[in-house]
Design a protein around this nucleic acid. Structure first.
Lengths: 152, 152
DNA sequence: GTCCCTGCAAATGGTTTGCAGGCGG
DNA sequence: CCGCCTGCAAACCATTTGCAGGGAC
């Protein structure tokens, strides 16, 4: 259950290709941002990404702009894990990123959960409410094993 | 499915009593904040609450402080609906507020969904992940009937 | 009278934007 | 070259906090 997506994070050439296809440039700063996203594999905040960057390689504002662009292009997905901070995760091509997370309330560690547990539920809700285009966000929180043992 | 909680929003005397029980004061500003929460019945943001207040009756900062206090006391529940804004909803006594929402992505209208669809799921996840104290947040988004008809 | 509470204003933290210069294609 | 990108700084927005005066009990 740990890293259901770690089997195929896109390589840098593929990422560059996807950018080029949208006629966007693969610049130095973007390269570094993608590099961190690629090595991270879990949702990461703009600030955390910035701090993981080689110093001086990319401005914080540019990190935000890159994340915005990559999200629009569908290369990364944004998650709201409930603490008011946006986190982003690299997607494989064709992946819509629909999975859920289990977040530790002490260390903010994130574990992915691969199954989506509500087959047909959105249709049911649509039928009852009259809403259309229904999607959902589901996040779990708890205390991870490491934090459990560290302190009580 | 519309307002599963509208059957019993607490009256002001009961709210005052709950405050007094915690030896907190029922001041003018708090009275007005509670009044808006009571009449609203749906999750409302601090700013929206402030604007619904009679002008000059309560400072914005005090709205935030009141919401913080009421949340600590368990009188209201905070929801993160995904847009980075916290919203608060009045709870009845004994209600833990565990239900989910269906939010319109165009008008931000909110409908409550009373059922929680994951019986036993948290236990399963705990067993698989080793996490403890697991809870979840689940929010649905879509386009409400009114917005569907207004524009395409 | 004693604290709790309040308004005001300033600080904070995450994120966005204006601008002029710079670099990728 | 042209237009997309970038760094820097300032702006923004939701929320929090310091402080001194004021009100509830």
């Amino acid at each position: 259950m740990d890293h259901p997506h770690s089997h195929g994070h896109p390589g840098m050439p593929e990422l560059a290709e996807r950018l080029r296809r949208s006629s966007r440039k693969l610049t130095g700063p973007r390269h570094h941002v993608l590099e961190v996203l690629r090595s991270e594999g879990h949702p990461i905040s703009a600030r955390a990404l910035f701090e993981a960057l080689p110093p001086g390689k990319c401005d914080l504002a540019t990190v935000y702009r890159s994340l915005q662009l990559l999200e629009e292009m569908g290369m990364i997905k944004r998650y709201d894990l409930g603490d008011g901070v946006k986190r982003f995760e690299l997607l494989e091509e064709g992946d819509d990123g629909h999975h859920h997370h289990l977040v530790c309330t002490r260390c903010a560690g994130v574990v992915e959960i691969e199954d989506c547990f509500m087959p047909g539920l959105e249709e049911t809700i649509a039928a009852h409410s009259g809403f259309s285009n229904i999607t959902h966000r589901l996040e779990f929180t708890g205390i991870c094993p490491a934090c459990q043992s560290q302190s009580q």
